[in-house]
Design a protein around this nucleic acid. Structure first.
Lengths: 339, 339
DNA sequence: TAGGAAATTGGCAGCGCTGCCAAAATACCT
DNA sequence: AGGTATTTTGGCAGCGCTGCCAATTTCCTA
C-alpha cells in the first residue's frame, strides 16, 4: 500500500515494560517511573513525551514489580467470617470506598467463622505483604496472634471492643449492646423474656451480647425464661423456626431478644403468619439495624450499628498509619414498634 | 546464666527471606523453594531440615516476589458494581470458596454501577497482573474492552448472557427471565400489569429484563399499564415507596412486576400495611429468589437465580484455564403465593 | 563392582520496578 | 561572564523469588 503508514502493532499479553516505554520516549527508566508516579521532579516536555509513549504502547505498570522494589505495599487484606452476613459486606463496602480513593487495593478471604481457617488464611494473606490485615473481633488462635504480631504489618480488629486490641481496634462494645437491649426491654415493662439465637461458639460477638443481656436480666431479678439456639448460620428462616420452637416450649413469654435482625425478622414473620399481636402479645428486639427492619409494617426495635463507618475509619487509620488505638463508634438504640 | 540456651530471637518486620532459610537449613535456595512449593524432587531428610528452619525462623514466603519471578499470578480480580446488592456478594462468595481451595487470591473493587469508574478500576486491577478479571455483564466502555482484550489475561463476564462475550461468560439470560416472568403473570390471568424498578441506565441487566417483560406483554396485546422508576439503588424502602406512588397513579392494576426481590418485598410490605390483599387484589412478582422471600407469610413469587453457582463455575473455569465459552446456568421460576 | 540412569541439589540470571547517587542541564546571582 | 544553587536526568544495584542448567549424589543393573 503506497503511502500507508506503518500500522500500530498492538502488543498482546501486555508485556510492555517500563524499559520499553523509556526507550520509546527517549528518556531513562527512572524518569518514566517518576512521571508515572508524579513523584520527584521532571520537566513538562518530558512528561508529555512519556505520557505519549505510555498511551501509544498501551503500557500498564506492573504493581507486582513496583511493590517488590519499593518497601511498603498498597494492599489491605481482609479476613472475614462470612460474606453472607451483611455486617461484613457493609464493612468491606465502607473500607473499599476509602481504599480506592487512596489507590489502595482490597484483598479478602472468608473463614466461615472457623478460627483454624482464619489462621491459615491470615498466613496466606501475610504472604502478600499487605500494609494491614483486618480481622473480625478479638477471638483468634494463639498462632494467628503470634504470626500477626511478628509480621510487622498493621492489624485492625473490627466490630468489637470487649477485649485487648493487638494494634488498632474499631467498632463498638457488644457487651454494652446486650446490656442496653435488656435495659430497654425492662424499661418497657417486659419481664418474661426469651432468646432466639444462632450458633454462639462461632459468632463470639453475638455470644458476648447474649451474656451481658442475661446478666442485666439477672441483676434485675428477672432472669431469662427460655432460649432456643438454632443450628447453622443466622437467617430469616432460622429465626422463624427458632421462635416457633421457643414458643412451643415457653408459652407465656412477653418478649424475645434475637441474636440479630435477620433472626428477628424471621420471628416477626412467624408472628404475622400466626396472628400473634406485636408487641402487645409478644415483643421482638433485634440487633444491627438493617434497612429492611424499617420497611416492614411495624418498624423493628433494634440496635443500629455503624458498620460502614467501621470500615471507613479502619481504612483511614491504616492509610494515615495512625498509632495503636481503640476507637468506639458506639451504636444507636432504635425504638421501633415491635418492643 | 550458666547453661542457658540462646533464646530465640523473634524476627520482627518479617524480613526473613528464602536465602536465610536456605542458610539456616544448610541447603541451597532453590531447594527451599522446591520443598515449600512441593514441586520438583528432594529427599525426605532435606524436607525435614527445611521445614524445621522455616518453623524456627517463622518464615512466610513473599508471594509478591514469587509472582514476579514466575510467569502467572494466582490473583483473580473482581470488578463489581456494588457490595450492597446481595447478587454480587453471592457471586463473590461462590467464587472465593473455590479460589481459596486452589490457593488463588481474590481481590476486588466496587464501581457503583459507573462505567467510567469500571474502566479506571479495571486498569488498576490489571496492574496486579491477575490471572483473570471478573466483571458484571456485557456493558463496558470501549476503553475497558480494548484494555481487557490487550491485557492477555482471562476475562469472565458474569450474570448475563444477552450479548457477545469477550472471553468467558457465566450466567443466565436476563431477557429470558423478563419474558418468563411476563408469561407467568399472563398465564395466571393478570392483564393490568404495572412495573416498579430502580435506575435502569445503571443496572443494565434489570433493564434487559424489563424490556423483554414489556415485549412479552405487548405481544399478548396487553401492554404495561404504568411504571414507576425510583431514583437511587434498589432497596426495600424504595420498593415500598415506588409501589405507593405507582398505585396513586394507576388505581386498577392487578399485578406489579418489580426489578428485583428487594423492591418486591417493599411492595409486599406496603400492601400489608395498607391492607391490600395479595394476590387477590394485587399480585406481586420479583426477581432473584432471596431466602427472605420464602420466609414472609406468603412466599414471594419470583425467579431464583444461581448466583453462588455462577461464582463457583466462573472460578473453576479460570483455574482450569478453559477455552472461551458462554455457560448458561438458567434460572428457576418460583410459584410463590404472591402471584 | 563398574557403568549408566535417575534422583537431588546448588548457582545464578533474571522478573519489572524503585531508590540512591552522581552527572548533566538549567537557573539565578554578582 | 563566571560561579553557585537548583532542577532534571540516567545508570544501576537490588527487592525475594523462580526457572534453567549443570554438577553431584544415589540407585540399579549386569
Amino acid at each position: 500500500m503506497p503511502g500507508s503508514k506503518v500500522t500500530m502493532e498492538f502488543k498482546h499479553q501486555s508485556t510492555v515494560t517500563l524499559a520499553e516505554v523509556a526507550q520509546a520516549a527517549g528518556v531513562g527508566e527512572s524518569t518514566v517511573s517518576r512521571v508515572l508516579r508524579n513523584h520527584g521532579s521532571f520537566s513538562g516536555r518530558t512528561r508529555e513525551r512519556v505520557m505519549a509513549a505510555v498511551e501509544r504502547l498501551g503500557y500498564v505498570p506492573n504493581r507486582i514489580a513496583g511493590t517488590l522494589a519499593s518497601t511498603g505495599s498498597r494492599l489491605v487484606a481482609f479476613v472475614i467470617p462470612s460474606l453472607s452476613n451483611i455486617v461484613f459486606s457493609d464493612v468491606l463496602r465502607g473500607a473499599s470506598a476509602v481504599l480506592e480513593e487512596n489507590r489502595y487495593q482490597a484483598v479478602f478471604s472468608v473463614t466461615d467463622y472457623d478460627p483454624g481457617k482464619e489462621e491459615a488464611l491470615a498466613t496466606a494473606m501475610l504472604a502478600w505483604r499487605p500494609a494491614a490485615v483486618m480481622l473480625a473481633g478479638y477471638e483468634h488462635t494463639d498462632g494467628t496472634m503470634k504470626m500477626l504480631r511478628a509480621s510487622g504489618c498493621r492489624v485492625v480488629e473490627l466490630l468489637d471492643l470487649d477485649g485487648d486490641a493487638l494494634d488498632i481496634a474499631v467498632g463498638f462494645s457488644n457487651r454494652a449492646a446486650g446490656r442496653e437491649s435488656a435495659a430497654f426491654l425492662l424499661r418497657r415493662g417486659y419481664r418474661r423474656i426469651g432468646y432466639v439465637g444462632h450458633d454462639l461458639d462461632r459468632d463470639t460477638r453475638a455470644g458476648k451480647r447474649f451474656l451481658s443481656f442475661c446478666d442485666t436480666l439477672d441483676a434485675n431479678g428477672t432472669p431469662l425464661i427460655a432460649r432456643e439456639i438454632v443450628a447453622g448460620a443466622s437467617s430469616v428462616e432460622n429465626g422463624k423456626q427458632g421462635l416457633e420452637r421457643l414458643l412451643a416450649r415457653a408459652t407465656d413469654l412477653d418478649a424475645v431478644y434475637f441474636s440479630n435482625d435477620d433472626m428477628a425478622l424471621g420471628g416477626y414473620f412467624h408472628c404475622l403468619a400466626q396472628g400473634i399481636a406485636i408487641p402487645s402479645q409478644l415483643a421482638i428486639f433485634g440487633y444491627n439495624g438493617l434497612d429492611i427492619g424499617r420497611a416492614i409494617p411495624q418498624p423493628l426495635s433494634t440496635i443500629r450499628t455503624p458498620r460502614v463507618t467501621t470500615g471507613q475509619i479502619a481504612a483511614e487509620l491504616v492509610i494515615a498509619n495512625a498509632p495503636p488505638q481503640a476507637i468506639d463508634l458506639g451504636f444507636e438504640l432504635i425504638e421501633g414498634a415491635t418492643a
